[in-house]
Design a protein around this nucleic acid. Sequence first.
DNA 1: TTGATTGCAAACGGTTTGCATGGGA
DNA 2: TCCCATGCAAACCGTTTGCAATCAA
Lengths: 122, 122
Amino acid sequence: MTPQRRAIVEYLEKARNHPTAEEIFSEVNRRFPMTSRATVYNTLKLLAGAELLHEIRKDDTVRYDPNLSPHHHFVCRRCGRIEDIGWELIPPLALGELPGRQLADSFEVTLFGLCLACRKRG
Amino acid sequence: MTPQRRAIVEYLEKARNHPTAEEIFSEVNRRFPMTSRATVYNTLKLLAGAELLHEIRKDDTVRYDPNLSPHHHFVCRRCGRIEDIGWELIPPLALGELPGRQLADSFEVTLFGLCLACRKRG
DNA sequence: TTGATTGCAAACGGTTTGCATGGGA
DNA sequence: TCCCATGCAAACCGTTTGCAATCAA
């Protein structure tokens, strides 16, 4: 556990909005100017590989989600913000064998619309 | 409507499996060796912009979905194949205002599991 | 001491763009 | 004629990797 890694983990603990790797890099680099992009990217990949973090991809860029409990996502059409939606808010879907004979074992819902801030902005 | 564009559209009409831009490029280029990558990419972007095609992103690469009717997706954990799931197979979710005060107007479900081919392969 | 972690810069893969050429209406 | 589509290559952006130096244990 090096200072760089600690800074990354601390940033992620506070980050409630699915930061991109680049956002994490610039914040960590601001606090620890010696930290390189490679270290941040590698650490993030390592954490994700260890299931301590989830990767979500939107528009070609990976975002990191420190929320490990199962949940769905809401994506704001206007500002692109991604917010978590509690798992219990979406009725569970029937899994198992589908009509196409695929065997489904999990699912994920993404809701689209306007976030609160963008609603206020009109 | 040039031969290149025709070839792209024809390929997409037959493609039932969400080809990547690169797959489209190599197939079109095989039939029309003069076709450049730029033309294919630009045409795809143009078609997607005109809502004649949907872009779906998986693992850093854009895939194109010629199925314009609303539907959900199934992603095979083993081979990565993406298949369409009929809209009517998923019970409609309640939209409108969410507890977090976001205003949801649409949703999308992704199911994960094993496709038929991978099930057979054991 | 010794293996893991770091910084740098260069490589990478998918995608986009600038620019000059060429064909279609 | 005039514009749009094309081909090529270079640029681009986010990400990954090779490598030598450095640090933690």
